[in-house]
Design a protein around this nucleic acid. Structure first.
Lengths: 229, 229
DNA sequence: GGGAACAATATTGTCGCCAATATGGGGGAG
DNA sequence: CTCCCCCATATTGGCGACAATATTGTTCCC
């Protein structure tokens, strides 16, 4: 049994696929936007076959994370401000839907965990822990999607989050932004815990509308380097 | 100049990629759900390299049209009724958003074309042209997305439509269904032509809510063969 | 007669090679 | 000095073969 478990441990922790590894490298910022992704380089960097990274690039291209041009290779796709706003509009519609569904399915455990996340968000804002707040933000949104049980919307949103992670991060870094979004998040949590679907949807939509309005501002105040690589 | 144009004509009409060909075969029903997609077969059937077919299958898998299992190949993904409902819920949220945006951007040409589609829908219902109505239905929804200018939502919705085409088709074939959806479509068109964003969104959401309610009914009355292939 | 191990087959995953194509630099003409 | 053409180079696209893996059919033992 222990042997079986040990053997399973070596094979079961499905070693991250090439696509997952590259996706992680892109969303974590290790690969910058517009950076070229040469198949030969990636294949030896990750110790994978060239065909493997090729398939991975095809997959990431259909996910919208990389851009592939015939005979010209792949590069990390740079999403514009307009696109980021479009993505957030879609989030407003879908996360609104999910918040409403989550409100009707929330359990006592969910209530406890979400309120806990809310409390830790308050603490993070109080102590100025911007990175911690950003991560709690991600956790809260993810938890709401999970509670909603809407796997289709969840898949779409997860994919869009990958594309938008850079703008999201810049927004989180914007001075004073956490203080603005904190009460919005707490309102969403309270509506969810109360089981009020309408209020939860409205609170979520209000939160994301606020994000849409803030995006151009954070872009304006950003020190921008040469746009073209 | 003319020579250049002629040369462009031979290369520009982008010959359908392998992925597009297979996607068409799936959405048109040529390939049935759960049907196995063997790489070697497809490659000689379409005269493409096995690597090309392979990439196409990876792409279609991330699009959600096919299912790929390690070392066990690919098959056409069968979407359940529950999934179809989830997809329609997402459509309700996103097409509602797009209808609202379209109402604020509609031009005189758009009004004319959409009213024309509406008129032809009425005629199709009157003459019992179910297939014609189904195609007009598709055209109308596509036109609204185009008018909205929300390319992100448009991409997501187009992908989901591919997954849902079978359920959509069954619904269109359901006796009496066109008569139910016709006034809903006309209401959407009128609200759009009036430039009333709120009314357009409400009408679109009402239409798709009606679809959600109809889906289980049409499923119940369906003569079902063996589910497993 | 039933079930389990085993062999045969079918299919996918991977690798190396070569052709096709875009990119960048160098040389020559105006 | 500048512009254009051509060639060297880097990189992708495609093909064939081979190894790894799952599935199916068969045989043998209990």
């Amino acid at each position: 049994m222990a042997v079986v478990a040990a053997a399973a441990d070596t094979t079961d922790p499905v070693l991250p696929t090439v696509a997952e590894t590259i996706r992680e490298a892109i969303t974590s910022g290790e690969f910058a936007p517009n950076q070229r992704l040469v198949e030969a380089e990636l294949s030896q960097q990750f110790g994978a076959s060239r065909a493997g990274v090729r398939n991975a690039l095809v997959q990431l291209a259909t996910e919208g994370l990389v851009e592939r041009i015939q005979n010209r290779g792949a590069r990390v796709r740079a999403v514009s401000l307009d696109e980021a706003i479009e993505i957030t509009e879609v989030r407003m519609a879908l996360e609104g839907l999910c918040a409403a569904k989550a409100a009707k399915r929330v359990t006592e455990d969910d209530r406890r965990d979400m309120r806990d996340i809310g409390a830790r968000m308050q603490e993070a804002v109080a102590t100025g822990d911007v990175l911690g707040y950003s991560d709690l933000n991600r956790q809260l949104h993810a938890r709401i999607l999970a509670v909603s049980g809407q796997s289709t919307a969840c898949t779409v949103l997860e994919r869009l989050r990958g594309q938008n992670v850079r703008h999201q991060f810049r927004l989180a870094m914007h001075p004073g932004r956490p203080a603005v979004s904190l009460p919005q998040h707490l309102a969403v949590v309270e509506a969810l815990c109360a089981g009020d679907a309408e209020a939860a949807e409205a609170a979520m939509r209000a939160h994301l509308r606020s994000v849409i309005e803030a995006l151009p501002e954070v872009e304006k105040s950003r020190p921008r380097r040469a746009e073209v690589l």
